[in-house]
Design a protein around this nucleic acid. Structure first.
Length: 515
DNA sequence: GCGCCCTTAG
């Protein structure tokens, strides 16, 4: 295996992405799924040898890309300073001159592991001849904000301010993260301090602040901020649409309707976005008579619905179970001459599938989409796969996956595989077919198995009387710090007891105690 | 149901 690897390196001059990422995944909190038990046997011997590869790669391979050299020095669970020190004190890393491209890729790679990201960020920042761009600072600000490291985030903003590289985008990220963390005063303060960052308090930045507050449901706070600002900063249609969305989000459609009047009072015209937002709100209440009323009003106001409006209505009609009415939306669309897009088609395919009109769904996919110049996306394929699986056309579902694999731009995600995994269990193909799918997920598409996938597969295997394999996956799941559901533990516990696997039973019970 | 992406809407 090792020899083969070196040969590969020398001959192909191709970075060892699949392998190195697997190695990385082994110790990463972000994605640790390389030892997925495609088969029980494989799982037993998955650890030791790979670490040897690791060493071989780092020591013997001069062509190992810089990014992988650095990744190999970053150990999960270390503090940002430990990461920083391990990079700083490593002579191989120190020979690397970081570029913004490299740092960008690294930070992106560790976007779910803020300590590693920050350690790398600090290391790169300390390298002579290198300076972080605003964009990289902003990524780091976002990463820190996401994990609520608000003081660290604030410190970065301060650094940026000193370097005069704060942009509107930085402010947007900082305000959104403050709002998201419930620190609304800090979001407002960031706006107040715009001048110190060399930026202006104007309609655009005010809208940004109002939007961050409204998106977090703090519409009333946004209102009071607005009332204070509006004498100096003129609102635009945008401003009111933000409020309409805010009110709708917290289910206060009356206030949203009232905002329409208010915007007219300010000489701003309600637009298709204003109405579509309110329509969605009525959709959520399944109040379709109001929806139709508003659709008519839009026409009357010279503001006809567009593809977004229609897709919204269609999707909620389908959700309400009224598939026929949902499909009829297509005709309304055709009459108005609104141009369909991929999200519209995905919704239509889904609806036709739910209405058991599979042939028509296939027709939309095969004929109407190409005719309208709309390319399928991951969601289209996922919808087709779900539909075929649901209607028992399992081989067709797998065929769609193959079609998808041929396309470069359209990669499968975890959702793509769920119906296919279910198909395996339904058709009893719980051997090669299932292991192949899991192997493809992890090793071909570098997807990490999430709680849903583990649950689905473990339950399926238990029902298929394959609890040894299920138990391997169960252990793997625990190893990846994914907490199993109570039901999953219960099910697998009963199964292993029946098979007299008392060791396993004990371990499962230990896990359950911690739930 | 939740988190992700993005953030004037699906």
């Amino acid at each position: 295996m090792i020899c083969h690897l070196q040969k590969y390196l020398k001959q192909a001059r191709i970075p060892l992405n699949p392998l190195t990422s697997r190695i990385r995944f082994h110790s990463s909190s972000e994605n640790c799924s390389h030892i997925v038990s495609s088969s029980p046997i494989e799982s037993y011997c998955s650890d030791g040898p790979r670490l040897d590869h690791h060493q071989v790669l780092c020591v013997d391979s001069p062509r190992l890309p810089d990014i992988d050299v650095i990744i190999s020095k970053v150990h999960v669970g270390s503090s940002e300073d430990e990461v920083f020190q391990s990079l700083k004190q490593d002579h191989v890393c120190n020979a690397i001159q970081p570029s913004r491209y490299l740092v960008n890729k690294l930070i992106h790679r560790f976007k779910d592991d803020w300590k590693s990201a920050l350690g790398i960020f600090r290391w790169a920042g300390s390298c002579p001849g290198y300076e972080h761009s605003s964009e990289i600072y902003e990524m780091m600000v976002d990463i820190l904000g996401k994990v609520r490291q608000m003081d660290q985030m604030r410190a970065l903003l301060e650094e940026m301010s000193k370097g005069h590289i704060v942009t509107l985008n930085t402010i947007a990220k900082v305000m959104r993260r403050f709002s998201g963390a419930g620190q609304w005063e800090d979001a407002v303060r960031t706006f107040d301090e715009l001048g110190t960052f060399g930026l202006e308090k104007n309609t655009e930045t005010m809208n940004l602040l109002l939007d961050t507050l409204c998106k977090e449901g703090k519409v009333e706070l946004a209102r009071s901020v607005f009332l204070e600002l509006k004498s100096c900063i003129p609102p635009n249609a945008h401003t009111f649409n933000i409020f309409i969305h805010g009110w709708c989000k917290i289910n206060r459609v009356d206030e949203a309707q009232w905002t329409i009047q208010e915007m007219k009072g300010h000489g701003c015209h309600p637009c298709v976005i204003s109405y579509s937002t309110i329509i969605q709100s009525y959709c959520r209440q399944y109040n379709f008579s109001k929806v139709y009323e508003l659709l008519d009003e839009m026409q009357a106001q010279g503001c006809p619905p567009n593809v977004v409006t229609y897709t919204t209505v269609m999707s909620y009609l389908a959700k309400s179970g009224d598939f026929e009415e949902a499909i009829r939306i297509t005709e309304k669309m055709k009459i108005v001459g609104s141009k369909p897009d991929s999200r519209f088609f995905n919704c239509l395919i889904y609806t036709l599938g739910r209405a058991s009109r599979v042939q028509e769904a296939v027709y939309v996919y095969q004929v109407e989409m190409p005719e309208n110049g709309v390319a399928p996306d991951t969601s289209t394929f996922n919808t087709m796969i779900t539909m075929f699986s649901h209607h028992g056309h399992h081989e067709k579902a797998f065929h769609v996956l193959e079609e998808m694999n041929k396309l470069e731009h359209c990669k499968p995600n975890v959702q793509t595989f769920h119906p296919l995994l279910k198909s395996c269990f339904k058709t009893g193909k719980t051997d090669e077919c299932l292991s192949q799918l899991l192997d493809d997920m992890v090793n071909k598409h570098h997807l990490s198995l999430d709680i849903t996938t583990y649950t689905l597969v473990i339950h399926g295997l238990c029902r298929a009387n394959k609890c040894e394999w299920a138990y391997l996956l169960f252990k793997e799941m625990i190893g990846h710090d994914i907490t199993p559901r109570y039901q999953t533990c219960r099910l697998i516990l009963d199964e292993v007891k029946q098979k007299h696997m008392y060791d396993a039973a004990e371990k499962i019970e230990a896990v359950m105690k911690k739930l």
